[in-house]
Design a binder for these strands. Sequence first.
DNA 1: TGCGAAACTGGCCGGATGGCCAGGAAAACG
DNA 2: CGTTTTCCTGGCCATCCGGCCAGTTTCGCA
Lengths: 123, 123
Amino acid sequence: MSEDIAPEIVLSLEIDDPALADRLAALLGNIAGLRLANPGEKAAATIVTRDPRIMPDDIALTQRELDVLALMAEGGSNKMIARQLNISVHTVKFHVGSLLDKLDATGRTDAVAHAARRGVIEL
Amino acid sequence: MSEDIAPEIVLSLEIDDPALADRLAALLGNIAGLRLANPGEKAAATIVTRDPRIMPDDIALTQRELDVLALMAEGGSNKMIARQLNISVHTVKFHVGSLLDKLDATGRTDAVAHAARRGVIEL
DNA sequence: TGCGAAACTGGCCGGATGGCCAGGAAAACG
DNA sequence: CGTTTTCCTGGCCATCCGGCCAGTTTCGCA
């Protein structure tokens, strides 16, 4: 009988789907040694949905665009990216333009943010 | 269409701390309507640890810098940010400069990426 | 009361960025 | 073979970005 301390594990929920969130909350609501976090409370762990938001086919990124995008996320300038990929700055600009278009972004920063949100890249 | 009455929720664990992972696995192991994912199995949700990588005090961001940073992450240009915050473009540049310095970033895109990685902002 | 930090503003300028134009080369596919 | 897609390159140019200089105001705190 280890009746010493009750190391209650606090879990927080970050689930978009309301139905799933409700079911999880109901299942986890009354388990000994486990508790759901109150709003604002810091939790030991978080339950999240790992839904890789799927990219519509019509805005699928080409391999080269993914290459450029990855280097953009590392803070690389067009010149640096060009050197990395052994292509000209013009070509980098071309791919960046396509990325801005496909990701519906206003600039390279927005493009990286959008891509990260969609799970296309991992920061 | 025969729909299951008891749609088992499959959860996967992504916990670094072995002790915490074990305790969670034990607690969640025998709950009706809930199951832990087998290796490779895709889960409805994932339990992760949210370690908010703490920002060293010497590079703590001021409130205004956080304001600017948030708008940067939305893809805002200096001009747009200036309008949003009712300050001049010069002031925005001033804060952006501080952010690049504190976040050790080469540009605004890199700054947003760094901030997101450190958990300073949420994309 | 004085001092420092934060916020704010300005000018200047080299370089980066993004949009537009126009093409060429190679591979896949019907 | 012709067509499409992807990748690649160039020029031109308006705008944006970021770094440098210098300044004022406001606020909290010693």
